[in-house]
């Protein structure tokens, strides 16, 4: 499973994506993903907000994750 990273999320992790290999624990929902990355990278907890997109749509915490989904971490947006 791959998770795309943008903006400050990329800086926090130091990579442009997080890879979960089949052998390790893979998040099964949006809330589990948020929890797992916040534990590994506590800097995520300091952000104004943290959203997740599944297949390029904002996804609520209860949305399940499949390894074929396109998943992205969406830190606070600041376009315009």
């Amino acid at each position: 499973m791959e998770v795309l990273l943008f903006g400050i999320a990329k800086d926090i992790v130091g990579e442009s994506l997080i890879q979960f290999s089949e052998s390790e624990k893979v998040p099964t929902s949006v809330s589990e993903l948020k929890q797992m990355i916040s534990e590994t990278y506590p800097e995520f907890g300091k952000l104004s907000s943290l959203a997740v997109a599944v297949n390029s749509e904002y996804a609520r915490d209860d949305v399940p994750l499949d390894r074929n989904d396109e998943i992205a971490i969406i830190p606070p947006v600041s376009g315009g």
Binding site: G7, I8, S48, A53, A72, P75, V77, S78, G79
Partner: peptide
């Protein structure tokens, strides 16, 4: 819209609205 803006100052960079 998922677009992010980084401010580049003389001595630092800041992702706008991140914190």
């Amino acid at each position: 819209v998922p677009i992010w803006k980084k401010e580049l100052f003389e001595n630092k960079t800041v992702w706008v609205s991140a914190h």
